[in-house]
Every structure is written in C-alpha cells, then in structure tokens.
Design a protein around this nucleic acid. Structure first.
Lengths: 199, 199
DNA sequence: CCAATTACGAAACTGTAGTTGCGCAATCCC
DNA sequence: GGGATTGCGCAACTACAGTTTCGTAATTGG
C-alpha cells in the first residue's frame, strides 16, 4: 500500500511539535496560539490542521511526549516493583504538571488532557486504550506476585491498582499535593498491609 | 456595611445558571456559548461578565451544583461509613460525568472542572479548599475509628483516603470505568483488609 | 433634592479557533 | 508524458470569548 500523491514533509511535524511544546511550557495551554505556531514554524494554518484537526489534538500530541515510558520491572519483590512503577508514573505527572501553568501548584497539562479526552471522542478512546495497556501490565505484575504467594489469593487486582494510580492522579489534579517516591512508598504500604487492626 | 449603588437583580443569576445548565447538559462545555446564554436569558453580555469573569467560571458555577452534598455519617462501623461516603462521591461524579458530553463514557464535566482549576488560579484555590474541607471530614472519621481500635494504630489516614477517593476519580476521568456502590465496596475491602498474604 | 455609586443594555471592537476556495507543487500509476 | 491524488501556501471568511465605551436606571447617604 504505497501512499499516493505528494508526501508530507515530516520535518514540519517535528518542528511544529517542538515550537508548540515551547509555547505550552512557557505560557500554558491558553497561551498556545495556532496562528503563532504556524507563523513560527513557517507553515500555513491549513498545514497544521491537516495533521491535528483541533488545538486540543495538537496539545495532546505535545503533552504525550512528556509522559514517562512506564517501563515495568519484575524483580520478584512486589513491594519494590510497585514503588518503582508508581514513581515513574509520578515523574510523568510532575512533568505534565509543570506544563500548562506558570505559577502555583496545579494540574497543569494533566487537566487539559482529561478535558480534551472528554471533548473529543477520538482522544478519549485513544487515552483509554493507552491506560488499558498500562493497566494490563500492572495487573499482570500483581497477578504474578499473587501466583507465587506474595499476595493474597483472593485479592482484587483492579481495585488495588486503581487505588494506587488513582491516588497519584487525585493529588495532582484535585488536591494539588505533591507526589514523589516517599508518597509512592506510603501508598504501597497502606495498600498492601491494610488498615484493619491485627487480630 | 450596606451595599451602595443599584442592587443586582438576583433573578438574573438564577435564570442564567438554569439556562447555562440546560445548554451544558445538552451540548457540553464546547456547545455552551456566552452570547447564546445572554440572549436566552434576556440580558447583556456585560451583565454576565460582571458575575462570572470567564466562561470557565460560569461553567464551574453550573457544575458545582451537580456535586453531592457529601454528608458524612459515623455509625461506628468504619467499613459501612466509608462505603456510604464513597458512594455519595461516586453519585456526584456520575452526575457530572453525564454532563459535558452527549454520548460515550467520558469524564464529561469533571475534566472541564479540573482544566478550569488549572487555567484559573482562583478556581484552583477554591476547589482545593473545598476538597481540603472534605478531606478533613474523612480524615476525622478515620481517626475516630482508629482511636476506638477499629483501625490500625499506625495507619496512614491521608494515603488511605487518597487511595479510595482517587480510585473513583481515576476511573471516571482516565479509564472511563463505572463507579457505583459495588465498586465502592471493593475499594473499601481492598484498602482495609490489605493485599499481603496472611502470616 | 443632589451627588456618589453600582447595575444594566447596546454596540462596536479585538483576538483566536476553525473553515473554505484556489492555485501550485510533488508524487504514483498507466 | 499525462491524469489522478495528495500536500502546501495564501487569503478571506465565520463563530465565539472577552473588552470597552457610553448612556441610562436604581439605590444610598447627606
């Protein structure tokens, strides 16, 4: 399936994303102007809209680059593996949090991403798929720990991971509290050890 | 301190919020037009902007009405109290999720709220304060259960509540999975009972 | 009654997202 | 080479958020 017609200038994609990233980091989502990106990149607006149908799509493409690669490790110590994984997620969140706002603790680009997913069905579907993939990796990690007897046989893996990942997002987007390795350790401890009194 | 000058027409606030709510529920945030709200409400745009400085502020005011009152109960059974509280939060989230989007599972108005908090420092401060209040209530509930011996003496109350509330928001905003009473029960079970194998 | 103060409506204005039409350029298939 | 297809630049256009100006209305305090 060879593409027909004039091929796209791939250098444009790279240049535009770089310029848009600089603008978002400097002025936030609201300060990102399509006209200005086009001008600085030396291309027409139509060229931008051929690649990203809305400003949201462009912003999502930019912000997606800030997210961590989320490589998961399985050392056989579920506690350490979970802390490491959560820390990676937290690092991506902190990078996104820095973008989209100049001052103060805020959701920054994370919030814009969620809003974009809510506004555009295709972005929503895409992000849900990406998170489903990540979820599957984490659930598999938990399942392996369960099988080898490190975790309870009757655990609820989905609830367990939702709790830990959710707490990170909740703090970044809602309460504005910091997320770092120390907090990841607190989360894993609380989730694994439980909170009922010992009998 | 008697207010000077011509008093505001309070009926305008009510009428505008009602009309804006109808538009948001019908067409979503993007489909909400200040011009149209002003026209339908029979007021000038300047009258709207005197009350809500941006479209985001108006939308937040509308959506805030959808949130639950979050009354907390303390029956002495921490498990039941937490499930009830999480269910109330989930109900508010589901109401907000329905708004802001016509079809498909999506964050809806929740995402717009987070984005608005990220874009406007005053909205962000306000929502963080509201959530801090709610957090304080939940932490007090947990603390009372700890003191009466229902929960571990060395628990991390902040992590515990972040986990449960965060999981709800994570599902609504990120994965699009449903949140209901059954899920609230799974969350509380997982968080309270822990996930390590019993020794 | 009068001055200060605040609310309201109307209209024009700016900036930006997104669209459309057109002419030209680059590529593939025959 | 020639036609079909796709990318690109240019310019004009629409729609909407948000602002500004100005004239008028309603209220308080003196």
């Amino acid at each position: 399936m060879v593409p027909r017609g004039r091929p796209r200038d791939m250098e444009v994609d790279e240049r535009v994303l770089r310029i848009a990233a600089a603008l978002i980091l400097e002025r936030g989502y609201t300060g990102l102007s399509i006209d200005e990106v086009a001008e600085q990149a030396g291309v027409a607006k139509t060229t931008l809209y051929r690649r990203w149908p809305t400003k949201d799509h462009l912003a999502v493409a930019v912000v997606a680059r800030l997210q961590a690669d989320d490589e998961i490790t399985d050392t056989g110590d579920i506690r350490a593996d979970l802390v490491n994984y959560l820390e990676k997620i937290a690092a991506g969140l902190n990078r996104m949090r820095a973008a989209g706002h100049r001052q103060g603790p805020s959701a920054g680009a994370v919030g814009e991403l969620v809003a974009a997913a809510a506004r555009h069905e295709d972005i929503g579907r895409l992000t849900r798929e990406q998170y489903a993939e990540r979820n599957a990796l984490a659930l598999a990690l938990i399942e392996r720990a369960r099988v080898r007897g490190e975790l309870r046989a009757d655990l609820d893996a989905e609830a367990l991971f939702d709790q830990m990942a959710g707490a990170l997002y909740y703090r970044v987007m809602i309460t504005g509290a910091p997320v770092d390795r120390a907090y990841a350790e607190r989360l894993v401890s609380s989730a694994l050890e439980g909170n009922l009194t010992c009998h």
